[in-house]
Design a protein around this nucleic acid. Structure first.
Lengths: 233, 233, 233, 233
DNA sequence: AATGAATGAGCTTTCATTCAT
DNA sequence: GATGAATGAAAGCTCATTCAT
């Protein structure tokens, strides 16, 4: 069971309230702007001072780590649900679609899933929970003769992460179209193409790719975290 | 015939020299850093003052527009070469691979191809030269019964642009792997999957997706172009 | 001959003017507040933007180094003048008095003389010019039988630096009184004490010792100086 | 008899306990960091909240005043012990050495002794207990013909306070060396210098002078003490 | 009465853009 | 016409002090 509570003594009521406000704000801001969003903006969105964010989360990584569990948990839950589906190929398709859309609606999630190393130990551990589950799903889909052999979880994460960057969150249609192409490439054999859903891509979908650029590059931790301050949760 | 000369009175000799220096520098810098690269860096690379860049190209878009023709021309040349290939499906594959790699090696190109509207009229016109040629190639590949019906040029540009963002320029292997999946999805029918080349994706390939972020976001023109200054070319 | 000009191509007229304004301002501010003074304050005092100070002197050490030569040169000039004095004991007394007052009027100088290492290579070299000259003066004063044996230049710098912290710049009287005590301790022998000049110390003189505390502690260079930028002079 | 009890109604048991914890912590922190130490650090050292310190001691001066008596008492005790020494010159030397080292080991003490006026009425009264005792010791040393005439207690406090700032607490050697010079200047007459103990000063001793700077400057009371809050003790 | 949290003000540093020479 | 410099705005971060619980 995931908990957002810090390990030690529970925070004071108002502090906990603010902490949750900050987390929720960070979630929204990260979703909209990516993990490089300014602390200022998160603080403004949360309705607290910037220093309050720093108090709870001295480093950006602390904020990311505090958020990741919820996000990873959702992915894991989806995979577990897929694991019990009697039709593994259908389950895989559903999972890929869900994952693609989840990332399309949350740029932060997309970056969290991509972010390897960089001092996010918790995060790395989280991803390691995903991999075997996805691997199992892949194996089952291969065993029933639908999914081509040789593909790995990362081989599938990569294109879906990329497709998630297409269009705005509302443009699920065009992403579904891309996913259809991908799935027709993933299937072992077929006699005809799956009909392409939605409408062809437009220039707008392309233009929306520009967005990832925003804010300064992550300056990374300059000091390795002073003494105490276990970064809340 | 493409010309880099400005329309009005020809520039003084030294001014023209500087203009070309800036363009060449911008090409290199955009390729390496993307279209958001600082004017400072371009000026340094060109060996001129920052203000000189601004004089010739008051807005970033002017610089982009002045560069696009060369880039588009290369694409057009490739398409024309593909148009005379007796095997349209093989030609399409080659073209997609070439386009993907070209973008992988030139971040600026990838962004130029994606950049629609946003006051880049020249650019929009340029893309319109590409579309019919690509459409013809697609049609031929469909007519010989290899390419699935329903796909449009943009439907193909989109995934290749995305795949181009994977890994470093040197990581052609992993991009080829993704392209193989895509092509197996594009073919009308097949009895077995095309063997996947290269090795599965790694976390490094994912992590490299982060990179696009750099520098500040393009703040757009603050004033809508003052008085004279017809943006050079 | 000391020059404040940068080594390479001379700066543009206005830039040089600003550079000198900044140096003069830094001199004043360092004198009043010590080397930890904020760049903001220096910029304000110079009448330029803070970023201008950073352009010329990316690191605090660059500013300090650019100023130190003038300061060290003055010390060296005094020592050379003392070296030709036929009465070495009188010359030593005069030099100690001058040095003490110079530091009393310029907190920056006092800190520069005290600051060892810390990446100020030029500064360290500067101090090494002082030491042999002071050593020679000391030797001569010992040879004429007035200065006690065993004392080194640093043994004398230390108390005069400390005495310089007493009172405000105007309180030369009380510092002279302390120096008299010191000199009576430095002389080889005496039959009577030198009359103490001025008036006894007061609480105000003590209170003025508080002052050194100011501003944040020097944060030191975080990055070891990027690439170019030879820090002006 | 000195008492740390507040004047008015006695504090609640736990409040009194906290008050003493804070005082003890402040003593330690002031000793190590000087009187500018942050209230935060004192609170942490005492194991109480920062606001608790503010409640008991709304101004830094209140804390200082509450501590000074213990410190002054120690000085007075030393002076009383010196007063009964049959050799007043030896007693004076011992007292100066003791005072110098006491300040060297307690930066707070050094600053308390220097802090005049600035609204520390209690403190000023305290110093007035010291002065006559020190004056008597001085007189006796002068009467036996060893100490030069004309020096006052403050004339001696000043150099010893300054010498106390040299080096770390462990560097008693170099301070003793300085004190030797001073004493040779204080003695009425002598035929030879007292041998200098220890080794000559080094750059490290100079560099250590820099340290006093830490934290922001004491911004003084912004409001002249609001309503009640009689500053505890 | 005590607390830990919140904050606002301050300094540092960096660019994109404009300006005086 | 060209230049290098100047700048304002913004973000990151910290700390002394005050406040809600």
């Amino acid at each position: 069971m995931t908990t957002v509570q810090p390990a030690g003594r529970p925070l004071r009521r108002d502090a906990e309230r603010n902490r949750l406000l900050v987390l929720a704000a960070a979630r929204r801001v990260f979703a909209a702007r990516g993990l490089d969003a300014g602390f200022d903006e998160i603080a403004r969105e949360a309705g607290v001072g910037a220093a309050t964010v720093y108090r709870r989360f001295p480093e950006r990584a602390d904020l990311v780590d505090a958020l990741f569990e919820q996000q990873i948990d959702e992915v894991v839950a989806q995979l577990k649900s897929a694991a019990v589906d009697p039709d593994p190929w259908a389950a895989l398709r559903r999972f890929l679609r869900w994952g693609m859309e989840a990332q399309a609606h949350d740029r932060g999630l997309a970056e969290v899933l991509a972010e390897a190393g960089h001092g996010h130990e918790d995060l790395d551990r989280g991803r390691q929970r995903i991999e075997p589950l996805a691997g199992a799903l892949i194996s089952r889909a291969q065993q029933v003769g639908r999914l081509r052999p040789g593909v790995t979880p990362l081989d599938l994460l990569l294109p879906t992460t990329l497709f998630a960057r297409v269009g705005t969150p509302e443009d699920a249609d065009i992403r579904e179209r891309l996913l259809t192409l991908l799935l027709d490439g993933l299937v072992v054999a077929r006699t005809a193409p799956t009909p392409l859903p939605g409408s062809p891509a437009t220039e707008d979908h392309l233009a929306a790719l520009k967005s990832p650029r925003r804010g300064r590059s992550a300056p990374a931790a300059r000091r390795p975290r002073p003494e105490g301050a276990p970064a809340a949760s």
